[in-house]
Design a protein around this nucleic acid. Structure first.
Lengths: 213, 213
DNA sequence: ACCTGAACACCGTTCAAGT
DNA sequence: ACCTGAACACCGTTCAAGT
């Protein structure tokens, strides 16, 4: 390891991108998508807004898709810390599971741009975006741990945790997507995401069939 | 009403687009999206493949987004007939409800391109795409009818049908999206969509909590 | 190493005509 | 009515250099 000092932080905004153009691109891309949607994202416009040449972003990302993959990874980090902060202090495993489901939906509603990019179809890029695969795998593992803990209490039914995870992921992802894409206007108006998430999660926990007590 | 004959069908493929360019554009767009994804769709390339000028599509669609809206409407038609054919012959309301859920997921897996366009974010366009809104509303009404009938048997719990509908739609839409976007590689491998849809639907019907018999 | 500037081969969309 | 052909203002990406 060298003892030379790291490259110093830039002293003013004008050289910000010289200090960390990669970071600046990811941030600017997320803001742009929040404002105008993914389809309006332009690498050239991004470069202009950061006052670098059209070629500069290619030092950090081979293609526009690779930049989007980096935005997605940032989204997974945001989502993980969003959920973690809501789980802090809660100890009951079933309550923690419910909280995680609600946090998933709420994150999507509060950060729709990040959510859309996280789950956009990047089939081709994924093979060359190991961070993206890893970020997804971590979220998945966390959910499976929460499910396992809830099953351990005996309150949640036994059975293949993978299958329970699939059902849980389906319902929370489905609700999140429908809310983010604004397809629920005919359901609840005005709808409150947290309330809906809680209601839908409860229906999944308790089931649609009538209880034969 | 005029007694004049309608415009005759084109006699050969070379003038196909003269007969119904609009129809040809929607069909070609769907095929293109199936092959290369939505992001690769090009109006100019579409026009080239149909041997018309770059300007010709604008006779039928004001923008590229309007063409995508038309593709989405076509998708809703396909989905409706896909489900209807699977419901035919089934009379038990609860079985019909389960069948509809499975058909929703299966349609997405068998027609991923149409499914993606149907649920893509077209917030801006929707206000000017009444057919799209109507197609969605019809699918929604059909599902609510199925739920109402299932509740009527007493096997499915009573309660706000809207809320049951939301839970059902969330779980089937979530599973469909996750399957279509290939996010389930860590769950079941190789997975069979119909089987997964049945399992997840059953978990929703029966609930995740342990039965206290 | 990191960035520039000019260029290539595309886009979506518009204008002014053609029949 | 329906389509053409040329043009405009963009894109993503590449080349050959600059420091």
């Amino acid at each position: 390891m060298s003892t030379l000092p790291r490259k110093p932080k830039p002293k003013n905004e004008a050289e910000y991108h010289h200090g960390d153009l990669r970071r600046a691109l990811v941030d600017a891309a997320l803001r742009s998508i929040e404002r105008d949607g993914v389809s309006e994202l332009s690498l050239r416009a991004l470069a202009r807004s950061l006052r670098v040449s059209p070629r500069a972003p290619y030092r950090h990302f081979a293609t526009k898709e690779q930049l989007l993959a980096a935005v997605a990874v940032e989204g997974y980090r945001m989502s993980a810390s969003f959920t973690a902060s809501r789980l802090a202090g809660s100890t009951d495993p079933v309550a923690r599971l419910r909280t995680a489901v609600e946090a998933y939906v709420l994150f999507a509603v509060e950060h729709p741009a990040a959510f859309r990019v996280m789950y956009a179809p990047y089939a081709l890029v994924e093979e060359r975006a190991p961070d993206l695969l890893q970020a997804r795998a971590e979220g998945h593992s966390e959910m499976m741990r929460l499910i396992g803990a809830a099953q351990h209490t005996g309150v949640v039914r036994a059975g293949d945790p993978m299958l329970l995870g699939l059902a849980l992921w389906s319902v929370m992802h489905g609700l999140a997507v429908l809310l983010v894409e604004g397809q629920l206007s005919r359901f609840e108006r005005p709808f409150e995401a947290t309330k809906l998430a809680r209601l839908v999660a409860s229906l999944l926990f308790e089931g649609l069939l009538r209880r034969t007590e």
